[in-house]
Amino acid sequence: MSSLHVEIVTPEGVRFAQDVEMATFPGEEGEMGVYPNHEPLITRVVPGELVLQTGEERKVLAVGEGFAKISAARLVLLSDMALYEEEIEEAKVAEAIERAQQALRQKELGEEEQAATAALLARSLAQLKVKRRHRSA
Protein backbone atom coordinates (compact mmCIF):
# COMPACT_ATOMS: atom_id res chain seq x y z
CA MET A 1 0.00 0.00 0.00
CA SER A 2 1.28 3.40 -0.86
CA SER A 3 1.55 6.07 1.78
CA LEU A 4 0.96 9.76 1.96
CA HIS A 5 3.82 12.05 2.86
CA VAL A 6 2.47 14.88 4.98
CA GLU A 7 4.35 18.12 5.56
CA ILE A 8 2.93 20.65 7.95
CA VAL A 9 4.78 23.93 7.94
CA THR A 10 4.17 27.07 9.96
CA PRO A 11 6.14 30.33 10.10
CA GLU A 12 7.90 28.79 13.12
CA GLY A 13 9.26 25.93 11.05
CA VAL A 14 8.40 22.42 9.93
CA ARG A 15 6.02 20.91 12.46
CA PHE A 16 5.46 17.52 10.88
CA ALA A 17 7.05 15.64 7.99
CA GLN A 18 6.24 11.95 7.89
CA ASP A 19 4.37 9.30 5.98
CA VAL A 20 0.86 8.54 7.14
CA GLU A 21 -1.99 6.42 5.89
CA MET A 22 -4.64 9.05 6.03
CA ALA A 23 -5.09 12.68 6.91
CA THR A 24 -8.16 14.75 7.66
CA PHE A 25 -8.02 18.52 7.67
CA PRO A 26 -10.53 21.38 7.83
CA GLY A 27 -10.95 22.69 4.29
CA GLU A 28 -12.91 25.79 3.45
CA GLU A 29 -15.77 23.69 2.16
CA GLY A 30 -15.84 21.16 4.99
CA GLU A 31 -13.64 18.46 6.45
CA MET A 32 -11.43 16.80 3.87
CA GLY A 33 -10.13 13.27 4.22
CA VAL A 34 -7.06 12.52 2.14
CA TYR A 35 -5.80 9.05 1.28
CA PRO A 36 -2.79 8.28 -0.91
CA ASN A 37 -3.39 8.71 -4.63
CA HIS A 38 -5.77 11.55 -4.08
CA GLU A 39 -6.43 13.73 -7.06
CA PRO A 40 -4.20 16.83 -7.21
CA LEU A 41 -5.95 19.69 -5.50
CA ILE A 42 -5.26 23.08 -3.98
CA THR A 43 -7.51 24.47 -1.32
CA ARG A 44 -7.75 26.84 1.59
CA VAL A 45 -7.50 25.63 5.15
CA VAL A 46 -9.63 27.11 7.92
CA PRO A 47 -8.95 26.90 11.66
CA GLY A 48 -9.85 23.50 13.03
CA GLU A 49 -8.72 19.99 13.70
CA LEU A 50 -6.18 18.01 11.73
CA VAL A 51 -6.01 14.25 12.19
CA LEU A 52 -3.16 12.07 11.00
CA GLN A 53 -3.78 8.34 11.07
CA THR A 54 -1.11 5.65 10.74
CA GLY A 55 -2.32 2.18 11.71
CA GLU A 56 -3.50 2.47 15.27
CA GLU A 57 -1.59 5.66 15.86
CA ARG A 58 -3.56 8.84 15.71
CA LYS A 59 -2.13 12.34 15.92
CA VAL A 60 -4.33 15.34 16.40
CA LEU A 61 -3.28 18.94 15.79
CA ALA A 62 -5.04 22.24 15.94
CA VAL A 63 -4.35 24.26 12.80
CA GLY A 64 -5.03 27.85 11.82
CA GLU A 65 -5.65 29.50 8.48
CA GLY A 66 -3.61 28.51 5.49
CA PHE A 67 -3.41 26.57 2.26
CA ALA A 68 -3.10 22.92 1.35
CA LYS A 69 -1.70 21.33 -1.76
CA ILE A 70 -2.50 17.73 -2.41
CA SER A 71 -0.82 15.49 -4.93
CA ALA A 72 -0.84 11.71 -5.26
CA ALA A 73 1.82 10.97 -2.67
CA ARG A 74 2.11 14.24 -0.82
CA LEU A 75 0.07 16.63 1.25
CA VAL A 76 1.57 20.02 1.94
CA LEU A 77 -0.19 22.11 4.52
CA LEU A 78 0.78 25.72 5.16
CA SER A 79 -0.77 27.19 8.25
CA ASP A 80 -0.20 30.07 10.65
CA MET A 81 -0.52 27.64 13.54
CA ALA A 82 -0.04 23.92 14.14
CA LEU A 83 -0.19 22.75 17.74
CA TYR A 84 -0.15 19.17 18.96
CA GLU A 85 -2.90 18.23 21.35
CA GLU A 86 -0.48 17.98 24.27
CA GLU A 87 0.94 21.43 23.58
CA ILE A 88 -2.33 23.19 24.09
CA GLU A 89 -2.87 24.77 27.49
CA GLU A 90 -6.55 24.82 28.05
CA ALA A 91 -6.66 27.49 30.71
CA LYS A 92 -4.63 29.93 28.65
CA VAL A 93 -6.71 29.29 25.56
CA ALA A 94 -9.95 29.85 27.45
CA GLU A 95 -8.54 33.12 28.71
CA ALA A 96 -7.57 34.18 25.20
CA ILE A 97 -11.05 33.39 23.94
CA GLU A 98 -12.58 35.43 26.72
CA ARG A 99 -10.36 38.42 25.92
CA ALA A 100 -10.96 38.18 22.19
CA GLN A 101 -14.72 37.97 22.58
CA GLN A 102 -14.73 40.94 24.89
CA ALA A 103 -12.67 42.97 22.46
CA LEU A 104 -15.00 42.07 19.61
CA ARG A 105 -18.07 42.98 21.64
CA GLN A 106 -16.74 46.42 22.42
CA LYS A 107 -16.41 47.12 18.71
CA GLU A 108 -13.87 49.84 19.23
CA LEU A 109 -11.32 48.12 17.07
CA GLY A 110 -10.10 49.31 13.73
CA GLU A 111 -10.83 47.16 10.74
CA GLU A 112 -7.42 45.56 10.76
CA GLU A 113 -7.49 44.85 14.49
CA GLN A 114 -10.96 43.45 14.17
CA ALA A 115 -9.78 40.96 11.56
CA ALA A 116 -6.74 40.03 13.62
CA THR A 117 -8.84 39.48 16.74
CA ALA A 118 -11.39 37.41 14.85
CA ALA A 119 -8.58 35.26 13.45
CA LEU A 120 -7.12 34.85 16.93
CA LEU A 121 -10.51 33.82 18.23
CA ALA A 122 -10.93 31.23 15.48
CA ARG A 123 -7.49 29.81 16.22
CA SER A 124 -8.21 29.61 19.95
CA LEU A 125 -11.54 27.92 19.39
CA ALA A 126 -9.85 25.34 17.17
CA GLN A 127 -7.36 24.61 19.93
CA LEU A 128 -10.09 24.21 22.49
CA LYS A 129 -12.03 21.92 20.20
CA VAL A 130 -9.05 19.61 19.79
CA LYS A 131 -8.36 19.57 23.51
CA ARG A 132 -11.89 18.98 24.72
CA ARG A 133 -12.90 16.39 22.16
CA HIS A 134 -10.07 14.08 23.00
CA ARG A 135 -10.40 14.24 26.71
CA SER A 136 -14.01 13.17 26.62
CA ALA A 137 -13.34 10.43 24.08
Partner: peptide, 19 residues
Protein backbone atom coordinates in the same frame (compact mmCIF):
# COMPACT_ATOMS: atom_id res chain seq x y z
CA UNK B 1 2.54 17.61 -10.35
CA UNK B 2 0.25 19.62 -12.53
CA UNK B 3 -3.04 20.38 -10.86
CA UNK B 4 -6.07 20.10 -13.05
CA UNK B 5 -7.71 23.52 -13.19
CA UNK B 6 -11.00 22.07 -11.98
CA UNK B 7 -9.46 20.99 -8.72
CA UNK B 8 -9.39 24.19 -6.78
CA UNK B 9 -11.52 24.77 -3.75
CA UNK B 10 -13.11 27.23 -3.73
CA UNK B 11 -12.80 28.59 -7.25
CA UNK B 12 -9.37 29.50 -8.67
CA UNK B 13 -10.33 33.18 -8.58
CA UNK B 14 -11.16 33.10 -4.90
CA UNK B 15 -8.08 31.09 -4.15
CA UNK B 16 -5.90 33.61 -5.94
CA UNK B 17 -7.62 36.48 -4.16
CA UNK B 18 -6.68 34.90 -0.86
CA UNK B 19 -3.27 33.56 -1.77
Amino acid sequence: TPVVPDNFEPSPEELLDAL
